[in-house]
Simulated scan of single mutants.
Amino acid sequence: MSSHSHHTIRQAILDRIQTGEWALGELIPGEAMLADEYGCARTTINRALQGLANDGVVIRKRKGGTRVCDMPVRQAKFNIPVVREQVEALGSVYRHQVTRRVEKAPPTAVQKRLGLAPGTKSLQLDTVHLADDRPFAFETRWVNTRAVPAILDAPLDEISANEWLVQTVPFSSGDVVFCAVNAGKDVAEALGAREGAAVFVIDRTTSLAGEFITTMQLYYREGYQLHSQL
C-alpha cells in the first residue's frame, strides 16, 4: 500500500481538475477507483476529497458521488460576466482582438496579488472586446501559469481569455471591486474614448484552494451600465 498522505492525494486531484481532466460539473471517479489508482487506503481518498469539498472545489453527495463544482454560476457571489454574451444580448456581433500576449515577470503589485515569488513569470494578456466592430470593453489581465498551465496552449485568438477561464477553470474565492476611473492613454485608445473620460471598471482577482489564478481589470466604454439581480 502506498504511503501517500491525504495532502498529497488532494493536491494530485486538484492538479487534474485545474488541467481540465474533469470539466466543471463533471462526476469524478469514485473513492474505490481512486484508491486503486493511487495505491492507497480509501479513507485517504475520503479525507482528500473532503478537503477539496471544504475548499469549495468539489461537491460531495451521499450516493451521488463527487463532482467538480460548477463554480461560475453556483458558488460565486458575483456572476462573472462573459463579455461575448453581454455583447450578443444587445443584439450586436461579437469579436475580440488580443493586443498583447507575453510571458514575463509581472510588476511588484501584480506579483503580490498573485502571491508569486519575485521573478516568477506569468502570462500578460490585453484584449479588446468589440460589438459590431466598435470597442465595447478593454481587458488587461495577468494569469498565474503555474496554477493554469493549460492557458499557454489555449486558442485565445478564437476564444477570449475571459470566456476560456470562466468555462474551463474552477475557482473557490475571489475579490471584486467596481469603480469608475479616468481613462489613461492606453485605455482611452483601446476604447476609442477621450483620455480622462470616466469609464466603468471591474477589478477582479480569483483563486482556487488558496492559489491565485488571475487578476484583471475590465474597462467598459462610456455609457455602460451594470445590471444584476437580487
Results as ranks from 00 to 15, higher is better:
Ala154Asn: 07
Pro29Ala: 09
Leu24Arg: 06
Glu88Gln: 15
Asp70Ser: 12
Val148Met: 08
Ile17Trp: 00
Pro155Gln: 03
Gln97Lys: 14
Ala23Asn: 12
Arg95Gln: 14
Asp153Leu: 09
Leu90Gly: 11
Ala76Val: 07
Glu88Gly: 07
Arg84Lys: 15
His96Ile: 05
Val128Asn: 00
Val87Leu: 10
Gly20Leu: 02
Arg47Cys: 02
Val128Tyr: 04
Leu90Lys: 15
Ala35Cys: 07
Asp126Phe: 12
Gly119Asn: 11
Arg74Asn: 14
Arg42Asn: 12
Thr43Phe: 04
Ala154Gly: 04
Ala147Arg: 03
Gln124Arg: 15
Val73Ser: 13
Thr43Arg: 12
Val102Lys: 14
Leu90Asn: 14
Gly30Met: 03
Asp36Asn: 13
Val98Asp: 07
Ile151Met: 01
Leu123Gln: 01
Pro81Glu: 11
Leu52Val: 02
Ala131Val: 01
Ala76Gly: 15
Thr108Cys: 12
Pro135Arg: 03
Pro149Lys: 03
Val73Trp: 13
Thr120Asn: 09
Arg74Gln: 15
Asn46Glu: 14
Gly119Cys: 05
Gly39Met: 07
Leu24Tyr: 02
Gln75His: 15
Glu26Thr: 08
Lys61Trp: 02
Phe78Met: 15
Arg101Ala: 12
Arg95Thr: 13
Ala53Gln: 07
Pro106Ile: 01
Pro135Tyr: 03
Glu158Cys: 09
Ala137Asp: 00
Met33Pro: 00
Pro155Cys: 09
Asp70Met: 06
Arg134Leu: 10
Leu123Asn: 04
Val93Trp: 10
Leu152Asp: 08
Thr66Asp: 00
Ala117Asp: 14
Val102Pro: 01
Val87Cys: 04
Gly119Val: 09
Arg101Leu: 10
Phe138Asp: 03
Val98Asn: 09
Tyr38Arg: 06
Arg113Tyr: 06
Thr120Gly: 08
Lys112Tyr: 07
Pro29Asn: 02
Val57Tyr: 00
Leu27Gln: 13
Pro72Tyr: 10
Arg134Val: 11
Ile159Trp: 04
Leu125Tyr: 08
Arg42Asp: 10
